[in-house]
């Protein structure tokens, strides 16, 4: 009787994992796409009101947050490079910087929204109810779109914190780093959305 050895590989398909992440990213892009569609239609209809409302936003804070997000996007890409080079220490540092940038972004957002709230401008406030249709639509879209984006920042941070500890425990290593790749992809998505949100919300004149 001949003996047969059966070779069993651990089931793992990084390509499929990444494809799955991308499919999820497509749904996210279309989610924000729908909001951008609503924004474009009303922007054309209430051109003057949208222009006036956008002047209320601080371009400096918006620009600062753009720079912060772009830097964080680079550092998370660097974390992946470090992992591929089997440099655990650097990978941890880069994920740490990314998380720090994310917190800084939210910190700025807190002040930006805080100033609006202070002036009585927030969804459901008496001031909002008094605004005409164009201004109301602009600020509703502003709060909803930047709010939804901020929620994505929080989700992204959670995902990256998980990645941080997985790298630390060597669950993510230079042979198996697809989780970090997918976490980074999500983070880049957040950056990608902001690239369009910033000029459309802050810079229209």
């Amino acid at each position: 009787m001949s003996e047969k050895t059966v070779h069993v590989d651990e089931h793992r398909d990084d390509e499929a994992s990444k494809l799955g992440m991308w499919l999820f990213i497509f749904t996210e892009l279309l989610l924000f796409g729908g909001l951008f569609l609503v924004y474009s239609v009303f922007r054309v209809q209430y051109h003057e009101a949208f222009h006036q409302s956008s002047l209320e936003l601080s371009v400096t804070l918006g620009a600062l947050n753009t720079v912060i997000l772009l830097i964080s996007s680079m550092t998370i890409a660097m974390a992946l490079t470090a992992m591929q080079k089997n440099d655990q220490k650097r990978a941890l540092i880069f994920i740490g910087i990314t998380l720090f940038c994310a917190a800084l972004f939210l910190f700025n957002k807190y002040f930006e929204w805080g100033a609006k709230f202070h002036h009585g401008l927030y969804p459901g406030s008496e001031l909002m109810a008094l605004l005409d249709r164009g201004h109301l639509l602009y600020f509703s879209l502003y709060f909803f779109m930047t709010g939804l984006h901020a929620l994505h920042i929080v989700i992204g941070m959670t995902l990256l914190i998980v990645c941080y500890f997985q790298v630390k425990n060597k669950k993510i290593n230079n042979k198996d780093y697809v989780l970090l790749e997918n976490g980074a992809l999500y983070w880049h998505l957040v950056d990608l959305i902001w690239i369009f949100l910033f000029p459309l919300m802050y810079l229209i004149s």
Partner: peptide, 16 residues
Amino acid sequence: MANNTTHTIEYKTLVK
């Protein structure tokens, strides 16, 4: 079982 085929991008390129 090197499953991942992701290309490594150098730090310098990312900075650029």
